[in-house]
Amino acid sequence: MITFLSLLLTGLSTGAIYALVALGIVLLFKAAEVVNFAHGSLLLLGAYVTARTWEAVGFPTAVALGVLVGALAAVIVERLLANPMRDAAPVALAIMTIGVDIVIATELNRRMGPDIVVVGHPWGGTAARLGDVAVPANRLIALLVAGALIVAFLVAFKLTDWGVAMRAAAEDRETAALLGVRLSRVTTLSWILAGALAVVAGIFLAGSPTPGLSPAVGVIALRALPAAILGGLDSTTGALVGGLVVGVAESLAAGYQDQLSFLGRGFGDVVPYVVMIAVLLVRPAGLFGTREVGRV
């Protein structure tokens, strides 16, 4: 039972991190019909900046720098590439982001080499105890921070002018434009937010129990894609639920891998994709996705 609780908690915290990334992916899809395959690279880029600067400027400033660079890179991609081809088909946009991903990932791979770069979290590798359940402090903090960010995001999405404009644009871009909504501003802000959220997620992903930042973190971040799609690419609720489902399923599969040994070692890493395909078989537009958007 204690194992189960600790696995559940780990899963929830991983899931909250995935949800941050998935939220960004969903946001970009709603705002601009872009499925951003470069999201993992943006995440890695920001976390890399934090990892390279914390010794010089201290952790909090380094986090701010990383988030800033991630958001900036997202805006550059948007202004320079996504915006000029905003009338192109979603598949063309997605292929463009694959090109961006190749470029950023290659440069980061080159800079990191085979090394693991440590992100200097002040809490390091300490474990936090909740009763008899022990989890890395990093994961507990991730859960809290991600939870707070998600709540803040949802409140903004529900209550601010930006949130209303964003939802309107996702539903009917032409009418939104005719009402005077500045679509390009809404879209740019979405890229900024998506980039920033991804970097925060990346900084936590590179912490305990993960030894540090390496290109492998980008691979882990890629699991936010199945999370986003199993929830429904156009649903913020879907991103949250999808993130948590993927995180918990992965954690349980990894924790009980001795009992699941017939599925092979490391099955936990595959679980997000198995769950995704299973869900898509039943609901091709994801759990909370709408049919119309599922047909894009």
Binding site: L225, P226, L233, Y273, V274, M276, G294
Partner: peptide, 15 residues
Amino acid sequence: RHIYLGIASIGLVVI
């Protein structure tokens, strides 16, 4: 369709 298949197909490679 389209994008959904693109992402689902990543799953096939990982699996």
